[in-house]
Write a protein that binds this DNA or RNA. Structure first.
Lengths: 150, 150
DNA sequence: TGCATATAATTTGATATCAAACTATATAGT
DNA sequence: ACTATATAGTTTGATATCAAATTATATGCA
């Protein structure tokens, strides 16, 4: 190894996580339909996974730990391409309500199909034992960091 | 839990990794000096950690697993703000050589000082045992994914 | 009622990132 | 030597992301 090893343990962990995130994001983004992005897929998937019908942009931003301006911008593009519908919240004059259109639902399932291949490839090469050991550790870590934000 | 759990194991793992990456990146970015970014700090840190003097943009891009256009753009900003020097490679007419200036070295150590606080906070709340278990698993995973790219 | 504060969404301006296309130089094969 | 291919760097145009500032609506408190 060429690297010095005097870094805090957490730094090394964050560093590995950053690189893995970059590699996987790039691989997944590459198979999405032209114009689609991971951020947009994530929104569509969120609705389906949780069986949601309507949600405010602020709630979505908070669910993904991104800022509201970021969500505004992503939702604008999704609305423009017909993946979601956005209406005013009748109960709160400041708020809006987002819902997924039929086109959005179809897009989500298209994406899932395309993601299956790189996902299977990853599953094939990554030792299952490692994944099983890692998942609970990552979950706990994520929950702790999450609470740190409040 | 409100989520369905029929996702592939690897998908869950990548999802957790993505969220952790977002949370930690945001926290670290927040303490950097005005105008500095994690990407730029990473470049400065790379030179110091490995004791490098000169390196080509392509090598740097490959070290961080980012594309060459991305590195071009980051290095341009760093050159403009005086953190690095960029010269033509005398041995290869296509290539360039990047080196860190005195200002860049000072910036790197400033950043390290500022990063110490959130890092210590993270170390304090994250169970050390978990980190120790996770690090080798993450390293192995990263290496496997890395090889998949070639 | 009215003002102060909080929250929702947006706008602006910045960086990081990518893919695709382009220019220039190097290398290899005939 | 020539041509084909590969590699280094850049440019262009797009999305995601953030912080800071702005606008509009809610809520709380006096």
């Amino acid at each position: 190894m060429t690297e010095k090893n005097d870094d805090p343990l957490a730094f090394e962990v964050f560093n590995e996580i950053g690189i893995i995130n970059q590699l996987t994001s790039a691989a997944f983004a590459a198979v999405l339909p032209k114009g689609m992005t991971i951020a947009q897929f994530t929104v569509l998937n969120h609705f389906e996974r949780l069986g949601l019908t309507e949600k405010s942009p602020a709630d979505l931003a908070s669910a993904f730990q991104i800022t509201r301006p970021t969500m505004t911008s992503t939702l604008s593009r999704m609305e423009k391409s017909g993946l979601v519908k956005i209406k005013a919240d009748p109960k709160d004059g400041r708020a809006k309500l987002v819902s997924v259109t039929a086109k959005g639902k179809k897009m989500r399932s298209d994406c899932l199909k395309r993601l299956a291949e790189p996902m299977a490839e990853a599953e094939a090469v990554l030792p299952k034992k490692n994944m099983q050991k890692m998942l609970p550790l990552l979950r706990e870590m994520r929950e702790i960091l999450d609470r740190l934000r409040d």
